[in-house]
């Protein structure tokens, strides 16, 4: 029933699709990081309505399914004249959804910085921008690298959802292979193994980085 020959013969096609999966993960992660940082800054704004609005928005995005958000971007945006390709809609949805997780990560990083650092920055007469870029961020980022790494892996494992808006990544490819040959078992087993082979070592690497950072910075978060 299980055909090794077939399972191996479709690997090149799946690995080709894996490139799309990885591209989507990377672009999605960059968007998530940028938006996440934006939310973090907004949440610290002295302007109360902005804080409330961003908090509510983040809470809402975090509590509703990524799949539905992808549909929303892909199907509803065109009604407002914004038509996006599956890839663009996909990475935008993925990035937006996980920005609500990353903003928490950034917050923990920033909260861990002693108050004295802000005061020192002000005392040296640094501008607000300079305090953020020269003092706060360089200290806030290293301890949260492992957490960011974990979310990168989580996002990688979420990319199959992009197949629902017709992006031809690994799962979509497996489905096409399956419907053409009716050999779904081999196709999806292959995909599962590829995911495992990539994500398990990656999580081990994150673990090692975590240990290193703990040694260097006394603790990670």
């Amino acid at each position: 029933m299980w055909s090794w020959d077939f399972a191996i013969s479709i690997l090149p096609q799946l690995l080709q699709a894996m490139i799309v999966t990885i591209e989507a993960t990377i672009v999605g992660f960059v968007i998530a990081a940028l938006l996440g940082l934006l939310w973090t800054l907004c949440k610290r704004s002295p302007f109360t309505p902005l804080r409330i609005a961003v908090n509510a928005f983040v809470e809402f995005i975090k509590s509703t399914p990524l799949l539905v958000q992808l549909y929303f971007i892909f199907f509803v945006f065109p009604a407002f004249g914004v038509s996006l390709s599956p890839f663009l809609a996909g990475v935008l949805g993925l990035g937006l959804h996980y920005s609500t997780y990353l903003t928490e990560v950034f917050r923990t990083g920033i909260d861990a910085i002693p108050k004295g650092q802000w005061e020192a920055g002000s005392a040296l007469n640094f501008s607000r921008v300079k305090i953020w870029t020269q003092i706060i961020m360089p200290q806030a980022i290293p301890p949260i690298i492992p957490m960011l790494g974990n979310y990168f892996i989580v996002m990688f494992k979420e990319t199959p959802l992009l197949s629902a808006i017709s992006l031809v990544e690994m799962v979509q490819t497996a489905q096409m292979i399956g419907s053409a040959s009716f050999r779904y078992v081999e196709a999806f087993t292959d995909v599962g193994i590829i995911f495992l082979v990539l994500s398990y070592p990656a999580s081990l690497i994150v673990g090692v980085i975590n240990k290193r950072i703990k040694q260097r910075f006394g603790q990670s978060i």
Partner: peptide, 11 residues
Amino acid sequence: RGTSLLVQLFW
């Protein structure tokens, strides 16, 4: 944890 939820469902 290492394979994706959707892959598991499809499988």
